[in-house]
Amino acid sequence: MTDPLPSSEVAAGINGLRAYLVITMPDCLPYSAWTRAGSDISVEDSAGYFGDLVRANRQGLKSVGAWSADMQVTIEASDTLVVLRELNDHFVCCAMYDRNTALGLLRLQLKSLVDRIMAGLPQLDVEERPRAVRVIEFLERYAPDPHAVLLRVSTRTGIPLASLRDPLVLNPDQVRSLEETAARILGLEHINV
């Protein structure tokens, strides 16, 4: 699929940048991405996991009344600095830098990166995908034994496997049942998608 942003131009000249992703929310899918040559970053996986992290962070901050729209998270991993920055309601930027990048420089460069991304983002309302689709994607990302998770949901809920593979056909009761089962499989009180 063609990247909707000129990603090489967006990333050009930013020292220490290993990759950037623009992630759609709440679906956690990659909208635009650039990775440095030789990098083995999985764009889809990163978008999924870091998108979920932002979502959890939003919920956590809201629960203590501390959320603001310009929230930013910095993760100092062993060989990478990851910065997650909310762009607007529908997009999040995830920028990954070499670990030895100075934080001051990083902040300056991040501003430049975000400005370039914002200039290319569409001004439209993003349509949310059906909840059942998002619950199943969440399950496939986090459930133990993801290879068997649809069979497990089918056995637990009584919903035929074919319907789970085409979640748009599920009726509201089935979606509720799917969601309760997903929470139970994951050991959560409810699914936050």
Binding site: A148, L151, S154, T155, T157, G158, P160, L161
Partner: peptide, 12 residues
């Protein structure tokens, strides 16, 4: 209707 899913899990 979902007996096949359970059987498939036992094969899995």
């Amino acid at each position: 209707a979902v007996a096949g899913s359970c059987e498939e899990l036992l094969r899995e």
